[in-house]
């Protein structure tokens, strides 16, 4: 008891315990990252081994960057497993660009529309403000399939199915609910006194919004955009049904490669996952304080 620590501080003992838990939790992720640097043969040569040999083979291999090259430079690389009626054409460089473009544009659109709306909901409540907010959240909480049934018909009729504007519009709406809730929670943390003071000083409403409010929620907008990007990038369901060969994004493309038993190129898939995971981990580290708000769609601040 000679060395008592202040409450809330644990020492290296806790570090060791936490490190063990973190290692177990992170192991699957680590294996995915390892796969990304392995050739196809390395991954499939590990069958029929004991666990020890297995783990050893996962961590000892000749690293290669070929998987990453394939993501960016080589089209039409995968055939479906034997027995498939036709070879599945894949073009990951295109899907990558599609994902970047579709996610990027829809997140920016949602951020613009959603930030304005969030400011409105936070500062100039309408009658039934809470009801609007509830409906908006519900659209986000719904399984995508519930909306997709009529959307599918709508897009067939309007010719938007499989086209960029269609999926971008859908993702914009998908992100909008999230953005409105997130941004509203940020606006609500600002003191309205500052805005009122600016109004007293003769600032126009536009000026109050752009010069007083927006600068204060810049970090929040960045966080919202980042979480929106993560959600959109990972979205499978809409993309599965509403993109075509030309507009396909990464998630449905990954699913399509899972043909037969060993048909999938796990190295390539791991490379895709790793490419996205690394920036996401950095974001997790940097935005640790906003993480809770991000993953609960802005409903819980802290």
């Amino acid at each position: 008891m000679a060395q008592r620590r202040a409450i809330g501080h644990a020492g290296w003992g806790r570090t060791i315990a936490a490190a063990i838990v973190a290692a177990i939790y992170f192991l699957p992720v680590l294996i995915i990252i390892m796969y990304a640097f392995q050739g196809r043969n390395d991954i499939l040569s590990i069958s029929a081994r004991s666990l020890g040999d297995y783990l050893e083979s996962i961590f000892s291999f000749t690293p290669t960057l070929s998987n990453f090259e394939n993501v960016f430079f080589r089209a039409n690389i995968i055939q479906a497993g034997e027995g498939a009626a036709q070879a599945t054409e894949t073009d990951f460089p295109l899907y990558f660009l599609n994902s970047v473009g579709i996610a990027g544009i829809s997140v920016i659109l949602a951020l613009v529309i959603g930030t304005l709306a969030a400011y409105g909901f936070a500062r100039f409540p309408l009658r039934g403000n809470d009801t609007y907010m509830f409906i908006i959240l519900t659209t986000r909480m719904l399984p995508p399939i519930v909306v997709t049934i009529p959307i599918f018909i709508m897009f067939q009729v309007t010719g938007l199915a499989g086209e960029y504007p269609g999926i971008i519009a859908l993702y914009t709406a998908f992100n909008l609910a999230f953005t409105v809730w997130m941004m509203k929670s940020f606006f609500e943390e600002l003191s309205p006194d500052v805005e009122d003071a600016a109004r007293m000083d003769g600032s126009s409403e536009t000026r109050v919004f752009f010069k007083i409010c927006l600068p204060q929620v810049k970090a929040g907008m960045a966080a919202t955009a980042v979480f929106g990007l993560i959600l959109t990038w990972n979205e499978l369901f809409f993309a599965l049904l509403l993109t075509s060969n030309e507009t396909r994004t990464i998630p449905p493309a990954m699913v399509r490669t899972l043909g037969g038993e060993v048909g999938a190129d796990y190295g390539l898939l791991a490379a895709i996952v790793t490419l996205f995971l690394v920036p996401v981990l950095v974001v997790t580290f940097v935005l640790q304080n906003q993480l809770l708000r991000g993953v609960t769609f802005g409903t819980i601040k802290k």
């Binding site: 992170f26 992720v29 990972n234 499978l236 990464i250 981990l281 993953v295």
Partner: peptide
Amino acid sequence: LLMLVLAPMMLSYVA
């Protein structure tokens, strides 16, 4: 360590 533990949540369902 917290970041490592949070990693699974940040993966996609597809991954």
